[in-house]
Write a protein that binds this DNA or RNA. Structure first.
Length: 743
DNA sequence: CCTGACCGGATTTTT
DNA sequence: TCCGGTCAGG
């Protein structure tokens, strides 16, 4: 009976994916094919059929938010009598934290179950400290580059030892920093994001009894977004499924967009090789989008060579044509988008609100500002996802750093963060002494501080300040036992003088930061109500993701395309479709990266249910300088018969007037071109300056680089953009360039 | 030790 | 443009 309800409304493929429960199963799920639904129903089915008890199922999702939603939906599917026990639905990282909080001390050494989690920020601080200690020049080897290289190496299973010996200086710098970084992490009893996965894998490998217990327990394992798993995640899955082999992975190779995070698309492409008994089911029926949108998506993704062909089909309506908007400037683009959005929502105001939700999707977070401003100008309420989420704000991280230090005084990242915040007279010189001592004796900052204090070698002023800080932390530590979290957080922000500091600033911004801290106290109160410990509170804060604070009923959502993965909206704007921005300039000369970028575009398109807008700004400020843009190559990959352009198409030069085409009122830039109505194609924009006869927008020919376009004229210098080769700067008077006829 | 002025370099995406 | 780092002066 219950089973019928569970399988009702599923198509044959989906049904098979739900009920094929013996052995490995690969579900290739196209965009909008009801993937989440399949996972939810599969879990409910396993429980309902008595194939597993709740604690025997592990489901892994990409975000905490997805996990929560999935859990809720499973319970909704089940009759009340079946709703027992705890279903484990988690992200890889939160699952690993669970395991490590139980077993990490098995390793012995400095690692204990009380470890601290270092986020990207903490990691960056530590890398910088290491560079300094090693006297490696930050200019020559940017900390971010080193950080990225180390993370990459770790995810590929490398250690400083396997990487040595180094041949070139860069690699040498990386390896040296890597080695010191790992030492310092261990000394601080800290784990970075990568460690969470790596150490869990190592733990299961090293201690068969632990592995045994988990392998035995998880009879059924489900992994969502499997195309985005990286090597440690793959290894973890392998380890966990050794016994029962009831692994179900769901994903879409065409939506693999996390290569930079070491995700390996081969994990899904070669699943059948990794699990020879595997069955494969393809969900190619799309329930989300109109035929037009799907046609665009199929056409775009077919340009990728490295893929397994899969055509999505839908029985949905043909739908409205895709709309293309070309705006003269990025500001105008934002205005046009918001205008179009309002008009669309107005036309559908008779529909339920859920049917009028819209998303503005961009490639980079930096683009969000323009759209926020445009929304504010029109009084449109919006929700911004990502960028600076609550737990990333400086004041929140400061408060959390205090809390971290209470639990683990050897947490160097936290120590450094707050030792002089608010300012308490502990300056660079004092800090240097502590740092030097810590480095010399391999101590944590905290222990080094205690030693330095005990020796009485500091000048009196510094000593007093330092002792005051140490006293403050010990005082707060004394309140740890038994006190509610909310009271503890309050004590931290009060006793540390943090609130007073904000009060004295008296600015609007300080006031908003004070309110954020108040909100943190509220969050702590809620954690108290859940019965959470400080440890759990901090873990959760470290592992929240951008999309976790997503608001489901927001009528307008702004976010990066990466954040939009797994979501859908009736109306979607994909903005900034310009060469160098999307696809991003950093990828255009790497074929594989470019294909990933195209998959990103594919993800963006397939978020749309009813209406899709693709937009471009003809000019955009980059580093505070106006640049002329080329339309994204991806735009040309969308079949032109299904796109309706408003405004001028650069390639055709034609002008289609419509209610949405822009007029002189939009973003007229300052300077000579200001008065000119901007309805002309980019190629004939008036120049904003001249040098040796070249004008902004001119097409030119260079002997080695080929054809290019003038994107900047200033100081007697010319910037020329060469497609695929980047922007080169020339001295205008001596530039070996010939002008090409205008198109 | 702290503040403010100045300069130079940077923007990809995130658990 | 904006942010972070450096340096001089209080």
């Amino acid at each position: 009976m219950a089973m019928n309800a569970l399988l009702d409304g599923l198509n044959p493929e989906q049904r098979a994916a739900v009920t094929t429960t013996d052995g490995p199963l690969l579900v290739i799920a196209g965009a909008g094919s009801g993937k989440t639904r399949v996972i939810v129903h599969r879990m409910a089915y396993l429980l309902d059929q008595g194939l597993a008890r709740p604690e025997q199922i592990l489901a892994v999702t990409f975000t905490n938010k997805a996990a929560l939603e999935m859990k809720t939906r499973v319970h909704q599917l089940l009759p009340p009598s079946r709703r027992y026990g705890e279903l484990l639905v988690a992200t890889f990282h939160s699952f690993c934290v669970r395991v490590l909080r139980r077993h990490l001390d098995r390793f012995g050494g400095s690692y204990t179950r009380d470890f601290t989690i270092y986020d990207t920020d903490d990691q960056g601080r530590l890398i910088k400290a290491c560079l300094k200690e090693l006297q490696i020049d930050e200019k020559q080897f940017p900390p971010r580059m080193i950080q990225y290289a180390i993370s990459r190496a770790k995810n590929q299973g490398e250690t400083p030892e396997t990487m040595a010996p180094a041949s070139d200086p860069k690699r040498d710098a990386i390896i040296k920093t890597f080695r010191l970084y790992e030492t310092r992490l261990a000394a601080a009893n800290a784990l970075d994001f990568d460690d969470l996965l790596l150490l869990t894998v190592r733990l299961l490998r090293r201690f068969p009894d632990v592995a045994d217990a988990y392998q035995d327990r998880f009879r059924y394992i489900l992994i969502d977004e499997y195309q985005d798993t990286n090597p440690p995640q793959f290894n973890l899955v392998r380890l966990l499924t050794q016994r029962h082999q009831n692994l179900c992975v769901v994903g879409d190779p065409d939506q693999s967009i996390y290569r930079f995070r070491a995700a390996d698309i081969r994990n899904i492409l070669e699943f059948e090789r990794h699990y020879p008994r595997a069955k494969t089911i393809v969900l190619a029926q799309n329930y989300r989008s109109t035929k037009v949108i799907l046609q665009a998506a199929n056409a775009v993704i077919r340009h990728n060579r490295a893929r397994r062909e899969k055509q999505l089909t839908t029985q949905n309506a043909i739908g409205e044509p895709i709309r293309g908007l070309i705006a003269p400037t990025a500001e105008a683009e934002a205005d046009l988008v918001v205008e179009a959005l309002l008009q669309w929502q107005r036309q559908r105001s008779h529909l339920p609100e859920a049917e009028t939700r819209a998303a503005i999707l961009y490639r980079t977070n930096a683009q969000s500002r323009l759209f926020e401003e445009a929304c504010r100008r029109r009084g449109v309420p919006y929700v911004l996802v990502g960028g600076f989420s609550f737990y990333q704000r400086a004041e929140i991280k400061d408060a959390l750093a205090y809390l971290r230090l209470l639990l683990n005084p050897h947490d160097d990242a936290a120590f450094e963060r707050i030792i002089n915040v608010p300012a308490r007279g502990i300056g660079k010189a004092t800090l240097e002494i502590i740092t030097a001592r810590a480095a010399r004796d391999g101590l944590s900052r905290w222990t080094a501080m205690e030693q330095v204090l005990a020796e009485g070698a500091l000048n009196p002023r510094a000593a007093t300040a330092l002792a005051g800080f140490a006293g403050l932390i010990r005082d707060l530590q004394a309140r740890l036992e038994g006190a509610p979290l909310a009271a503890l957080v309050s004590a931290v922000v009060n006793r540390s003088g943090y609130l007073e500091m904000l009060a004295q600033e008296g600015t609007l911004e300080a006031e908003s930061r004070r309110q954020n801290l108040e909100e943190l106290v509220t969050a702590a109160t809620e954690a108290d109500e859940r019965g959470a410990s400080l440890r759990e509170f901090l873990d959760q804060a470290a592992l929240v993701s951008d999309t976790d604070d997503l608001v489901d009923n927001a009528r307008v959502t702004l976010m990066t395309i990466h954040s939009a993965k797994g979501l859908e909206f009736p109306l979607v704007f994909v903005v900034g479709l310009e060469e160098g921005l999307f696809p991003h300039a950093r990828v255009v000369d790497d074929a594989e990266e470019l294909e990933e970028e195209r998959r990103l575009f594919y993800v963006a398109i397939t978020r749309a249910r009813h209406q899709l807008y693709l937009t471009q700004a003809q000019r955009r400020r980059v580093y505070g300088e106006e640049r002329i843009t080329d339309p994204s190559r991806f735009l040309e990959e969308v079949p032109e018969q299904i796109v309706q352009f408003d405004g001028a198409l650069p390639s055709s030069g034609g002008i289609t007037r419509s209610p949405l085409s822009y007029g002189a009122s939009y973003g007229a830039p300052a300077g000579p071109s200001a008065a000119k109505p901007s309805v002309e194609p980019a190629r004939s924009q008036p120049a904003t300056g001249t040098a040796e006869g070249f004008r902004l927008g001119d097409r030119v020919e260079h002997a080695t680089y080929g054809a290019g376009q003038v994107v900047r004229v200033a100081d007697g210098k010319l910037d020329i953009a060469f497609p695929g080769k980047g922007i080169k700067r020339f001295v205008a008077a001596a530039a070996p360039l010939t002008r090409l006829p205008r198109r």
